[in-house]
Simulated assay, not measured.
Amino acid sequence: MLSSAVQRTVSALVGRQPLAWPVGTKGVHTAVSRPKADSPESGPPPAFDAALLDFLVCPLSKKSLRYEMSTNELINEELGIAYPIIDGIPNMIPQAARMIRQNKQQEEKEPK
């Protein structure tokens, strides 16, 4: 004899009745929606744990990094690049890094 859940599934597949699961069925998970990052109820992004700076190094130069709170980035002064921190997690992929040395040179050239 098939269990009631299997019977409902088979019946629904052959078109006899709609598939309806009772509330509170063991093993059924509901999706929880998270607020989007730009929505007002999301609040501030998780803070970066500065203790990680003892372990993190630039993947390109293997030099230590500096945390810049105003831009929420990890800075490699030697190479002039900044790695973004997204939701409290540093994105250490070199292709995701932003060049900061060029930005400083452009700012110096612009008349004030």
Rank of each mutant, 00 (worst) to 15 (best):
M1K: 08
S3D: 15
R8V: 01
T9K: 08
S11V: 00
L13G: 07
R16N: 09
P18H: 08
A20K: 12
A20S: 10
V23L: 08
G24C: 03
T25H: 05
K26I: 02
V28K: 03
V28M: 09
V28D: 01
H29P: 00
A31P: 01
V32G: 01
S33P: 04
R34S: 11
P35Y: 10
K36T: 13
F48I: 03
L53A: 09
D54I: 04
D54C: 03
F55L: 13
L56V: 10
V57C: 05
P59E: 04
S61G: 01
S61F: 01
K63E: 14
K63G: 01
S64G: 11
E68L: 15
M69N: 13
S70A: 15
N72C: 15
N72V: 15
E73W: 07
L74Q: 08
L74G: 10
N76L: 15
N76P: 02
E78F: 06
I81C: 03
A82C: 10
Y83F: 15
P84K: 07
D87M: 06
D87W: 03
I89Q: 06
N91T: 06
I93K: 03
P94S: 02
P94M: 02
Q95E: 13
A97S: 15
N103S: 08
Q105D: 13
Q106Y: 00
E107D: 09
E108C: 03
K109C: 05
P111M: 08
P111H: 06
K112F: 14
K112I: 14
